[in-house]
């Protein structure tokens, strides 16, 4: 029992975070949101090993468990990563066969890969528009239910992880703003009401991350717990952040909205709050699973 990442895993997670934070700046996010052409960073992601985190070693992947991907997803959330990276590296890759994956990593590194939505498809009437300017969505047909449940579990863990990354980012933006903005002759961050709101969000984040890690390793009810906790944390973070920003928070100009909208979007993805709560109802209220101390791990 050692509920920590190994040093190698931590190095990988840190490298991913450095890359996301360094490359996906808000300037870049804004450019992409405005539909401007930006440099394709997928080859770099491939070179860093980020695309093959969960791919088998036989096809050049790193064969890391979902929990490592979850930590990378948290970093992606923090940066507001505007690419379907998690969907590919964390969801498609681990559900693909080795055959389907052969050549994938090599292609990716040679810049042949850039996920996009086919222009014709986008115009076909199946396109839907999200409030998040960085999400390109189309309506797709589902597979069978069992597949979806299985993929949902992965998706739930990784969307939960992104949500707490987004939450942390919104807290950090709010802290920066609260140190800078003065009213009544002092920084607003010196007011206790502001401090206490932000301390509450910080606490919720700290007590959501570990259950996400547990969910990634153990699956089961922990996944539903993790997703609901992450949703509630992210909504609290977003509402707190906009409040701390005052009128500024209600503008398109301040960066906060990019992260807030992503959080709204991910709350409903990969099983919304109702879906996961219903699963917990079955498990806790209607089932007869052993509950209490000693059964968490």
């Amino acid at each position: 029992m050692d509920f920590r990442f190994t040093e190698d895993q931590q190095d990988l997670i840190d490298a991913a975070k450095t890359f996301f934070d360094g490359e996906y700046t808000v300037e870049r996010l804004r450019a992409m949101a405005a539909g401007e052409e930006v440099e394709n960073l997928w080859p770099q992601m491939g070179q860093l090993g980020l695309l093959g985190i969960m791919a088998p070693e036989s096809v050049g992947g790193l064969e890391q468990p979902l929990v490592v991907m979850a930590a990378v997803a948290e970093a992606a959330g923090y940066a507001g990563l505007p690419e379907p990276y998690i969907e590919i590296a964390g969801i498609s890759v681990p559900h693909a066969t080795a055959e389907q994956l052969s050549g994938f990593i090599q292609h990716a590194m040679r810049s042949e890969l850039r996920p996009y939505i086919d222009a014709a498809l986008a115009k076909s009437g199946d396109a839907v528009k999200s409030i998040d300017p960085l999400r390109n969505l189309i309506k797709a047909q589902g597979g069978n239910d069992e597949d979806i449940d299985n993929i949902n579990l992965h998706g739930a863990v990784l969307s939960a992880a992104q949500l707490i990354g987004l939450s942390q980012c919104m807290v950090d933006m709010s802290v920066d703003y609260a140190k800078d903005r003065h009213q009544f002759g002092k920084p607003i961050g010196s007011f206790q009401a502001i401090k206490h709101h932000l301390a509450t969000v910080y606490t919720q984040i700290e007590f959501t991350r570990p259950i996400i890690h547990l969910a990634a390793i153990k699956g089961g009810a922990a996944v539903h717990n993790a997703k609901v906790a992450a949703i509630d944390t992210a909504i609290l973070a977003a509402e707190t952040a906009i409040q701390v920003h005052g009128g500024m928070g209600y503008t398109y100009e301040v960066d906060l909205h990019l992260f807030m909208k992503r959080a709204w979007a991910l709350c409903g993805e990969w099983g919304d709050r109702n879906y996961h709560m219903k699963k917990l109802e079955d498990y806790i209220l209607n089932g007869d699973a052993e509950l209490g101390p000693g059964v968490t791990f």
Partner: peptide, 26 residues
């Protein structure tokens, strides 16, 4: 019912966090 579930969820979150804290302290 949802409050009951929430109470249970919180205790599990606390447990997971404690094991992580203990791993760090160890």
């Amino acid at each position: 019912g949802e409050q009951v579930i929430q109470a249970w969820m919180n205790t599990e979150r606390f447990c997971a966090a404690t094991y992580q804290l203990v791993a760090r302290v160890e």
